[in-house]
Design a protein around this nucleic acid. Structure first.
Length: 433
RNA sequence: GGAAGAGUGGCUGAGUGGUCGAAAGCGCCUGAUUGCUAAUUAGGUGAACGAGUCAAAUCGUUCCGCAGGUUCGAAUCCUGUCUCUUCCGCCA
């Protein structure tokens, strides 16, 4: 959420930003209400001052007659105060509602455009898209062939969109997790296993709407808990309400959790197989930084994502997300899109990671501050997040890019230690050869 | 899951209706002093919001887990809720 003072002082910029992001919010109304509210607040405080002073006199009153007469006037003052406070609160609630709709400001370098058509390709990975001398299978066909992925069993036990992973694909999944955690801890990230559930207030702080009609979130009946859609939620929530010493920043965390998404309304061939599922595992990077660090931190996260996908030999492109395609909390967002040969007619780019700089948008809601030693006051930290591996999609990219004509799949060298094999899905004869 | 107890400032901890933003100690900061890797001593030391200022100073409001309530007035009484501790039960 943006600071009200900032909105009032930068009305035109905020309005332009809303337009760029294709979000309509009545900013003028918000500003008008906020100015009204400030006046009311002053009134409330004045009345409270008087009311407090009157109450104090009662304690020092000489006799009960004086006491009684003071009580009457003090009660009247309090009632006036309560009335003014109630008016203030009505205005405040309306402002808050509007304020929550205002998206974060966008980075000045963000491509401007109302949707993803304006996204800008910034770079390509180290590996080029492979030319196949056979007809490549998609990950579902490969998964069925080797009994690696069982959607039928998933829907029988749980429901449509759930799946079982089996056999060597599980080993590959775990290897990716292990590899990412090792790489990230080398780079100063603290490995973190988070809860898979979080309180609704934390979800809201991060920018998710847990209970609305179009929610992406599964929630628990009769409790204020929901299944998390990403460990960004729990990692951000970990510091909610805290004031961090400046010297501790930046704080780099890498979380592993299951992620749950209802995916209401998403369907179609582009969502086939593991691409869009209700549950997957994700390794997520999360950083708390000082404001002046956050741009550089964002580049660092992007570079790590590139390094990880370079390491597993996947061709990808880096996309700078256009204003209209940014989520509400993001100031700037980069996506890595991996080449998926089995996607669409003859291969397509598919989003595998996403890294956002949310500046102080989340920390303001979650009340996460930092303090500079020996200086008065506190400031909001900047928060950033980035995907290391979303396992389901990383698996798609490996299966489809590293498949062989016989349906076996080469294991990237950096993962072989944990998989225990250099090729998976070979016939027993080939394996012993 | 059952029972009992507790949640106060950076930390320990006092405070059961009015001068409490809150004793005391520790820590930290500033100064003094003794020439010795420290002791002694004086003073200072929370945050948010609003007003004010070039910036300060200053003033006001709020904050004693959280949310409500009672009252002229609440850290203190009442209700709900969360968390922690101990004991019991259950259990991978």
């Amino acid at each position: 959420m943006l600071d009200r003072k900032y909105i009032v002082d930068n009305v035109e910029a905020v309005k332009q930003n809303c337009a760029n992001r294709n979000i309509s919010v009545d900013v003028d109304r918000l500003v008008e209400l906020e100015l009204q509210r400030r006046g009311k607040l002053q009134l409330v405080q004045d009345l409270n001052t008087q009311s407090n002073a009157e109450s104090k006199k009662i304690g020092q009153a000489k006799d009960s007659e004086e006491r009684e007469s003071l009580k009457v006037s003090a009660r009247a003052l309090r009632e006036q105060k309560d009335a003014a406070q109630a008016e203030h609160d009505v205005i405040d609630r309306e402002i808050k509602e509007l304020q929550l709709q205002v998206p974060n400001m966008a980075h000045s370098d963000c491509p401007v455009g109302v949707d993803d058509k304006s996204n800008l390709e910034l770079a390509r990975g180290k590996h080029t898209c492979r030319e196949f001398d056979f007809a490549p299978l998609d990950h579902l066909e490969l998964g069925e062939k080797h009994d690696w992925i069982d959607f039928e069993g998933g829907s029988r036990t749980t429901g449509n969109g759930f799946y079982f992973l089996k056999g060597d694909l599980v080993m590959l999944d775990l290897a990716l997790q292990q590899f990412a955690m090792v790489e990230l801890s080398k780079r100063g990230f603290t490995p973190t296993i988070t809860p898979d559930l979080a309180q609704d207030s934390v979800l809201e702080g991060i920018g998710f709407m847990p209970r609305g009609p179009e929610t992406q979130i599964y929630s628990i009946e009769n409790m204020n808990l929901s299944l998390i859609g990403t460990s960004e939620i729990t990692l951000g929530g970990l510091y909610s309400g805290k004031t961090i010493a400046e010297s501790e920043l930046p704080i780099r965390l890498c979380g592993i959790s299951h992620c749950y998404r209802t995916e209401a309304g998403a369907a179609g061939r582009a969502s086939r197989g593991l691409y869009r599922v209700h549950q997957f595992t994700k390794i997520e990077m999360f950083v708390f930084a000082r404001p002046e660090q956050s741009d550089a931190m964002h580049e660092e996260l992007r570079q790590i994502e590139c390094d990880l996908f370079d390491a597993i030999g996947i061709p990808y492109r880096v996309v700078d997300t256009a204003t209209g395609d940014l989520g509400g909390p993001a100031y700037r967002k980069y996506d890595l899109e991996a080449w998926m040969p089995g996607r669409g007619e003859s291969g397509e780019w598919g989003e595998v990671t996403s890294t956002s700089n949310c500046t102080d948008y989340q920390s303001r809601r979650l009340n996460i501050r930092y303090k500079v030693k020996d200086k008065k006051g506190t400031h909001f930290v900047h928060t950033l997040n980035g995907t290391a591996f979303a396992l389901s999609r990383a698996l798609i990219s490996i299966l489809e890019n590293h498949q062989n004509a016989d349906g076996s799949v080469n294991v990237p060298e950096c993962l072989q230690l944990w998989v225990g094999k250099s090729v998976i899905g070979q016939t027993p004869a080939a394996e012993s050869a």
